[in-house]
Design a binder for these strands. Sequence first.
DNA 1: TTCATACTTGCCATATTTGACAAATATGAA
DNA 2: TTCATATTTGTCAAATATGGCAAGTATGAA
Lengths: 82, 82
Amino acid sequence: MASMKRSEILKIIGQNIKRIRLEKGFTQVDLVGKIEARIDTTNISRIEKGRTNATIHTLYKISQALEVPLSEICDVYFSESV
Amino acid sequence: MASMKRSEILKIIGQNIKRIRLEKGFTQVDLVGKIEARIDTTNISRIEKGRTNATIHTLYKISQALEVPLSEICDVYFSESV
DNA sequence: TTCATACTTGCCATATTTGACAAATATGAA
DNA sequence: TTCATATTTGTCAAATATGGCAAGTATGAA
């Protein structure tokens, strides 16, 4: 299991979120509207772009809005050997 | 998929980490020793107890030390319908 | 009991996330 | 081109995660 740099992890997490969001046909605004606790497209954008190291609770809220398990957002694997 | 409170999420994440750590026979000190970037048993403890809302990068570092995929730590599901 | 090990908690300083708003940018339609 | 929608980025304040150390607690062995 190769260790990745912080920036790589954040980028992958962000790409996961964006990919799932687009697959579901949501805009960032849609997403924000579905999240109970307040969140902002500012933050969605920053997380999707890998510019911020989101907390697990924020990612959980996003996973709820995307209607996928949190673990799907946190899937950072390509091909690896554990 | 039921929405959980922040404290519940953090508790589950923490329990996952502690369970995996104990399964592997690691102490918190062992864990800290395996993590490249500095981390402290203080923080491991806080995260395991659900007292802190860890960032995804911190959880990634822990997953590396535990030699499990990040998604395993982020598995917050029991029985649910997505 | 004492001792050792493991873990928890309190406190502090620093860094960063988050939420909020405004402005800038990108894209596509008309 | 203009217009509308979507996304990105800058800045700010407030909240909080992190790292570090010290002290407290728990457990079991001797």
